[in-house]
Nucleic acid binder design. Structure first.
Length: 591
DNA sequence: GCCGTTTTCGGCCCGACTGTTTTCAGTCG
């Protein structure tokens, strides 16, 4: 296999930069959008795009054609794209920073560069202070004002983006508080719900989108005014009949949109998105002579705009079966909905047990029995106790001797606590050479083994891949925990050849985890989908460190749904005896 | 620059808001 250290994320960054540069250069918007779409496809790919390009196969990815295949190949072979070099020489780097300011895009950046010679944020500030921006046709005093206030904000907080992304549970919590607050003030007959990326159950959320309908005459005004009264809201920037825009004290944007009940389906469909899903949906609709917006569907043939109360009817009108919100990312769901081949997605109620949990034996906060009772309360049939292993290194090491004692304690608790099967397991460290930190004899006494990387994240992709594959080839390793090590919005995944890992997992019968900790969700949606396509069995685990966080399972199921997974593709939707028989140590015995 | 129930060229979603305008361009989601 072609080996390249050029990561997908580095390629995606390069394509985005090139798109920005072409935009500054005045390229037509569709060409720029093509670069952005290609960057997204590269970032989401679960195989090495550099390796694909070296084989001449990058154009197999959606949105990448002959030209971009060549440009990625050049980047992989020479470390640079000639067109980007040329454009970088033409436009000073400060111009890109200017396009990032609110209210300023490529057109205006180009304008201030050509008319005033502005080539940096500092030069822009000087021009605004000297009131020179208003001398350019199309620009005025208001823009000077907004430029200066944006620069002040940037100075105060140079690293943070204007609106940071937060992980889903936090956004959902704020969103639900806002919905409850609005509902309490809206009166009878109002319907209020969350849309946007929260409803799609994305990894992280930038803005909270709220959709509301009201039947009373002054309903819209009451709702918009109610929003400004909520304690979470810092300020409302605009309010009208159709809705309001606001910002929370924590800095999240809030977009409230209001419609008549008869349009709820149209509004909800529009505001659930995603952007690429809606764009693709609308392009397909145009070919049918239909124009879709949040207000309804305009029919070219009749000139009438039809509105729909439910999303089901919106999709039906467009010749599509209903698409679950988690799938609306333009990753093939429209074609599947057209052909009636969408999957029956896994649900939280399908989960029968949890195979990754911690207790006070390592870094957990509850006893075996407390965890067992909490799992039973959740309706589980089984729970694996998998404390950290002998070299965890955070003061929570479980020595071989302690593990033997822990196994006895689990067995005792299993006889004491009725109504749930307790499994004695371990989350064993995968050492840099791929070996494990207990000997095989002790590992052989365990019911369930999840192996994870917790150290030496910085080794090369080649070394990390070999390390993982060695661990998967161990006959007693049932599953790999949080396989890429990413932390959402905080830490990139470690360098790893995922395609090779998936192949090895399928070959050895090792399961790969979707770790349901909402800061991890690892495997990610696209990677879990890639793994399942490669024939890998997925297991969804809470990785709970206290009884309460067994409930994190829901975020893992959310990721599985975004990965198009059905219940049958996930191991722990099966009763333990059935799951137990399907894992590799039995498959190996059968041979 | 991509792509095909308008297939190798000519299209490529839809609307709101803002500021600068007197009909609209640019930006944003």
């Amino acid at each position: 296999m072609a080996e390249s250290e050029l990561s997908n994320s580095a390629i995606a960054d390069a394509l985005e930069e090139l798109g920005d540069l072409y935009e500054l250069d005045g390229a037509i918007v569709h060409r720029v959008l093509a670069y952005r779409a290609a960057a997204k496809a590269v970032r989401e790919a679960s195989v090495s795009v550099a390796a694909l390009a070296l084989e001449g196969r990058a154009s197999e990815l959606p949105g990448i054609g002959k030209t971009l295949q060549e440009k990625i190949l050049a980047l992989a072979q020479t470390g640079a794209i000639p067109a980007a070099e040329r454009l970088r020489a033409k436009f000073p780097p400060g111009l890109i920073a200017i396009t990032r300011l609110p209210g300023l895009g490529p057109k205006r950046a180009r304008l201030v560069h050509s008319e005033l010679g502005v080539d940096s944020l500092q030069a822009l500030r000087d021009a605004a202070l000297a009131q020179r921006l208003r001398t350019v046709r199309g620009l005025g005093p208001k823009l000077e004002e907004s430029v200066l206030s944006a620069l002040v904000e940037l100075d105060a907080n140079p690293t943070a983006h204007a609106s940071p992304r937060v992980v889903l549970p936090r956004a959902l919590e704020i969103g639900q508080e806002l919905v409850a607050g609005l509902a309490a003030r809206a009166g009878e007959g109002a319907h209020i719900e969350l849309a946007g990326s929260i409803r799609r159950q994305a990894d992280s959320v930038k803005d909270i989108d709220i959709v509301a309908t009201t039947i009373s005459e002054g309903g819209p005004q009451i709702l918009a005014k109610s929003l400004s009264k909520l304690e979470q809201i810092e300020q409302v920037s605009s309010a009208g009949k159709a809705g309001a825009k606001a910002r929370t004290h924590s800095g999240m944007g809030v977009d409230l949109r209001i419609a008549a009940p008869g349009q709820l389906g149209n509004l909800l469909q529009h505001f659930t998105g995603s952007g690429p899903h809606n764009a693709a949906l609308r392009e397909a609709a145009v070919r049918m002579g239909l124009h879709v917006s949040e207000y309804g569907i305009l029919n070219d043939a009749t000139g009438a705009t039809d509105t729909y109360e439910t999303e089901h009817h919106v999709y039906q009108r467009l010749g599509l079966s209903y698409i679950d919100p988690e799938l609306r990312e333009n990753r093939g769901e429209l074609e599947a909905a057209r052909g009636g081949t969408l999957p029956q997605l896994i649900e939280l109620a399908d989960i029968r047990g949890d195979l990754h949990s911690h207790t006070i034996a390592s870094d957990g906060h509850n006893t075996i029995e407390e965890m067992a009772l909490a799992a039973r309360d959740r309706g589980y049939e089984y729970l694996a106790i998998t404390d950290h292993s002998a070299s965890h290194g955070f003061g929570n090491d479980v020595s071989p001797e302690q593990l033997r004692r822990q196994i006895e304690l689990v067995r005792e608790a299993n006889t004491r606590v009725q109504g749930i099967e307790l499994l004695a397991g371990s989350e064993v460290n995968i050492l840099p050479d791929g070996s494990l930190d207990y000997d095989d004899e002790l590992l052989g006494e365990l019911d369930w083994i999840v192996a994870s990387v917790h150290t030496s994240f910085g080794i090369s992709a080649q070394a990390m891949t070999a390390r993982m594959i060695t661990a998967m080839e161990h006959p007693l390793v049932d599953a790999i925990g949080h396989p890429t090590g990413r932390l959402i919005e905080r830490r990139e995944p470690y360098a790893l050849d995922l395609a090779a890992v998936f192949t090895a997992a399928a070959r050895t019968g090792t399961m790969l985890e979707i770790n349901a900790n909402p800061a991890r969700r690892d495997l990610s949606d696209v990677n879990a989908r890639g793994a399942a396509r490669a024939g890998v069995t997925i297991v969804i685990d809470s990785d709970a460190h206290r009884a309460g966080t067994l409930a994190n399972m829901r975020w893992g199921v959310a990721t599985a749904r975004r990965a198009w997974l059905t219940a049958t593709q996930v191991a722990n939707t099966r009763p333990w005896p059935e799951l137990e028989q399907r894992r590799k140590r039995h498959a190996q015995q059968r041979r």
